[in-house]
Design a protein around this nucleic acid. Sequence first.
DNA 1: TCATCAACGGTACTGAGTACCGTCTCAAAG
DNA 2: CTTTGAGACGGTACTCAGTACCGTTGATGA
Lengths: 229, 229
Amino acid sequence: MSRPSAAIRLADAAFALFDERGYEQTTVDDIAERAGLGRTTFFRHYRSKEAVIFPDHDRLLELIRDRLATSSHSTALVAVSDAVRLVLLHYIDEGELARRRYALTSKVATLRDREIASVARYQRLFREFIADWMGDPTEAASLRAELMAASVAAAHNHVLRRWLRGESADPVAEVDEAMREVLRLFPTPDARSGEDQQGSTVVAFRTGQDLDALLPALRRLVEDGQRPL
Amino acid sequence: MSRPSAAIRLADAAFALFDERGYEQTTVDDIAERAGLGRTTFFRHYRSKEAVIFPDHDRLLELIRDRLATSSHSTALVAVSDAVRLVLLHYIDEGELARRRYALTSKVATLRDREIASVARYQRLFREFIADWMGDPTEAASLRAELMAASVAAAHNHVLRRWLRGESADPVAEVDEAMREVLRLFPTPDARSGEDQQGSTVVAFRTGQDLDALLPALRRLVEDGQRPL
DNA sequence: TCATCAACGGTACTGAGTACCGTCTCAAAG
DNA sequence: CTTTGAGACGGTACTCAGTACCGTTGATGA
């Protein structure tokens, strides 16, 4: 039974020292010394002092990219909603480690900014995927892709942070519910594209007027196929 | 007619050198020397090398905060949509400077991350404002606030980036249109709260069925005031 | 036994950011 | 006119992150 690997010892030492003295008060020298390793070895395993806390964002990003590339969902938004679950599951899999990281990022501005930048990369990936999938270079479509990507990311982060704070017992169920909420925000426009569509778009209304008084207008709507507003 | 202030000379020197050699290839010493000032003076005016590019995010954030605090709009989302225009107008007011900054942030990862972190602070402000305004501690409301804030920020960034890239002739009109799109995503639930409401919510629908066949269901809707879905 | 290769340690360097101190100028107060 | 105090600036010296380079060790296999 050999000692834990250098990378693990360094990470353990780093978290321990961050807890004891705080992030800024801990130098890379301190971490290496605590781990019984040299400073050079630290940077061989982690690109930066921050990276010891965020180990595998790159790997996870690739995982998401692959998932999206091989996904076969009915809409881009569903595909992205599905892919983002991987991120949540990854954090949950980390368990206590993720919570310790959250405690740090909550206090240290530098780390918080780094975390936010990582999230932005996911969001960008989502946006590009959705835009490609729609294949519509319109300005409106572009904005829509941006809004969708932002909503998925926001919903995910919302659930993730709740779980990190210990406010969520079943984050997987919550993220599914949150994604349904996002899907409700963006009713699928597919059904409107053709002329001979089968689907029906249902709209509820309430008014002070008697229903019969509205019938002429309703009849015109149905006959002309015009959409008000 | 005196020389321009130290802060301005430093910023000019910084942008010039960033253009000539690139951001990483320029040291603070270089900037100070070009400006005919000492290194210490640079850090007296700008907290960091990055800060010389992003001068007044803090001030702008306060401006937004004030605007929100004194706003009297019908809904939180409208108030935020209004406030975010200030950000856009600020960038437009900067003109060419904003575009030079964009050129830099597009190339240098460090600067891009910093810019993203700034945007996140606006988004956080929006989220907190909306959550406070709603005064509903429910999980669903919290998620909704998060989605709203993210959507407003995303819509704003979309228009801003288009303008920065020179793709938008009238960014103010575009941001107004984008905000209308965001408002459409979140239909106001205000009208549903009371019993004796006056307003009418209109919904259009289309179906293969004959209108008369739907009448019974419609009558029930109107009478019971129930909401389908 | 020898060659190879990977992991590690050490030294020295660059550059950002901080602390501290000294200088100069200008303006108000004496 | 002199003094005092404040503000802007310059310089030196320091800490620490991150990089480059080189030398050492140790295991493995031909």
